[in-house]
Design a protein around this nucleic acid. Structure first.
Lengths: 151, 151
DNA sequence: TAAAATATATTTGAAATTCAAAGTATTTGA
DNA sequence: TCAAATACTTTGAATTTCAAATATATTTTA
């Protein structure tokens, strides 16, 4: 195969990976959670995840992490609070801020979600036998940081 | 670094790539289209793309490609038809089927969308200098087919 | 310090997306 | 032929999200 053709093919594969495949992951995750008896939607799961990942979990910081408006987040946190998944209190230092936290009920769900991710990743690694591929890993690391920093 | 730690790190990176990053691609694409004066939503773009990609573009085939119900697709095609982006006609062989096609107005939009994808991919390849990395490409190819076939 | 500007969050009304269920028309096959 | 299967549309409801308006608290500035 010619060099240009290889390059073109490579680009097509990365493009496919980034677009076609990733579109399905949400649905796959959602179905998995439903099968494990979790009643929350994926977007609610994402809110819970973001709360645990962000350093100072105020409404603004969580919304930024999620890429949604603070208004949208308020709507979502309202129902999560109602259902008993999150705590919510004013910051004592700066009373404009609301600090959100996940309650045990949420941790249970997040654990299930995390289990699924681990299974998925392990299955990929086993099937593809890529654990020893240093070059792949370092390239993926670059690819990952590229997305984090570029947009 | 120990072997187990390297493995753990590798898995974390793939997980991050599959989860954190893909969540943003839709929004990134949407913003880009808006900046190019395109009035359609990403979900409408996906419908148009699916129409061009599927072999026999009937409602059922297009919906299957998209992973949505035929009812949802009908709603979307209704507005795309109204706005003059797609054609719509009964199959002469089997009059239950509706064959959908993209009109010039849609091709224009798809071209812009495609331009963006190419720019994104080219910029990744240039920055990372990975075009010669055969191993990466073959692994990504496996990763890609893994997702296509496993779910 | 008091007023103005800024920052944080909530509420509300509307739009978009999607689904499930019910309904219509056409084709298939027993 | 006619009952079942297939292809599609319509409808009503749920979810998600946003923008704009509103409310408070804090910081800046005049």
């Amino acid at each position: 195969m010619k060099k240009e053709d290889r390059l073109r093919e490579s680009k097509a594969i990365v493009n496919e990976l980034l677009v076609d495949i990733f579109n399905r992951i949400l649905a796959i995750e959602g179905e998995n959670l439903k099968s494990r008896g979790v009643k929350l939607s994926m977007s609610e799961i994402h809110v819970l995840e973001a709360i645990t990942k962000v350093k100072e979990p105020t409404m603004t910081n969580i919304a930024k992490k999620l890429g949604i408006t603070v208004g949208s987040l308020t709507v979502s946190v309202n129902t999560l609070y109602q259902k008993g998944f999150v705590s919510r209190e004013r910051d004592v230092e700066d009373r404009r801020k609301v600090v959100v936290g996940v309650l045990p009920k949420a941790e249970e769900v997040l654990e299930k979600h995390n289990d699924f991710h681990n299974e998925m990743i392990n299955s990929i690694f086993n099937d593809l036998k890529i654990e020893e591929d240093e070059l792949l890993i370092s390239s993926l690391k670059k690819l990952s940081s590229y997305f984090i920093n570029s947009f």
